[in-house]
């Protein structure tokens, strides 16, 4: 200690909250979903997840070190989370080179182009996923059946949402969907595991309830009201809530700090928007799944929401109501 007198600007009291602490909290919350994916897809899920994390971290390191010539900040865990979420959003038989392109798009285009963590407008993992979905639609939409129920290795099947749109008789049962025994992306399988992650993050106060709950309630109410008029299985609110990437998106993607609104009311508006757009795309759009597009769309509107719904300033007194 040579410098005994340290002068620093405010704040002087720090809560001990750091980017890294929050990010590693999210990582722990992702563990249950990861375990389910290991059980369902076996080694493939492990390889893809590890590879995706590696690709993302390497991309970030190379860009920061050699292109921006800054000190790399890969240790804060945000690139690791992007990598895991990207892997959770792809089918378990995706070739690794496609995954690498997705990682470069997620970190390079989605994050570093805008100036790195905190400056990105769009959720990097989702941007990477949509980039791949548009570029490699064939590979991104052939879903292998879980190894526990596939008749032969490498058999593929339609996802619940595809069935919903084109083949409503072949819908999976609600309990299979809850525990994760249907075909789909690596991390979106089990509603139960994802909900465990949500509970952990709420308990650790990593996120607040506003975004996930408002998304889920909106989707539930919207599809329920349609179900009242047209009670076909394709409109069943329970299936809508449990299927596809809705839970994964609502819990882990939409709640990304940098790309969601700051105030509680803003979060509610944001969540309702995601819910409405998701259902619209699922029921009337060209794609069977709309969560990623809905979240990216509301990401783009986040600055606008922040402008109109301002958080209360610290120390500000609410005027007499």
């Amino acid at each position: 200690m040579e410098n005994k007198l340290v002068v620093s600007p405010s704040p002087h009291v720090h809560s001990g909250d750091t980017i890294a602490k929050n990010m590693y909290g999210v990582l722990i919350a992702l563990v249950p979903a990861f375990l389910v994916s290991l059980y369902v897809f076996g080694l493939n899920a492990l390889i893809l997840t590890v590879a995706s994390v590696l690709f993302c971290v390497i991309t970030e390191y190379v860009i920061q070190r050699y292109m921006l010539k800054r000190i790399p900040t890969i240790a804060d865990g945000s690139a690791i989370i992007t990598g895991i979420l990207l892997a959770f959003n792809v089918p378990s038989n995706l070739p690794l080179w496609i995954l690498a392109i997705g990682a470069i798009a997620a970190i390079g285009i989605g994050k570093m182009s805008f100036g790195g963590l905190g400056n990105n407008i769009f959720n990097p993992a989702l941007l990477g996923r949509v980039f791949l979905l548009i570029s490699f639609p064939t590979q991104m939409t052939s879903w292998p059946l879980p190894s526990t129920m596939a008749p032969v290795d490498g058999a593929t099947a339609a996802t619940v949402l595809e069935n919903m749109k084109y083949n409503p008789e072949a819908l999976s049962s609600v309990s299979d969907m809850f525990f994760g025994l249907e075909s789909g992306s690596i991390g979106e399988m089990s509603a139960m595991a994802l909900l465990l992650g949500l509970i952990y993050m709420l308990w650790k106060r990593i996120i607040t309830w506003h975004i996930p709950v408002s998304i889920l309630v909106t989707v539930g109410l919207f599809t329920a009201s349609i179900y009242l008029f047209d009670p076909s299985p394709a409109n069943n609110p329970l299936i809508h809530l449990l299927s596809g990437g809705l839970l994964l998106g609502a819990i882990f993607m939409a709640t990304d700090y940098a790309t969601s609104p700051l105030s509680k009311n803003g979060m509610l508006i944001y969540g309702v928007g995601i819910g409405v757009v998701t259902v619209c795309i699922r029921l009337w759009g060209a794609y069977p799944e709309g969560v990623s597009f809905a979240i990216l769309l509301m990401n783009a509107l986040t600055p606008l929401i922040n402008m109109y719904v301002k958080p209360k300033r610290f120390g500000e007194v609410v005027k007499n109501v």
Binding site: W97, I101, I109, S113, F131, I134, S135, F136, P137
Partner: peptide
């Protein structure tokens, strides 16, 4: 088969131009 189709579509135009 190894081409990134996105670049032929409209979003790719914006990204490449940027």
């Amino acid at each position: 088969d190894f081409g990134v189709t996105l670049f032929i579509l409209a979003p790719g135009a914006f990204i490449a131009l940027g």
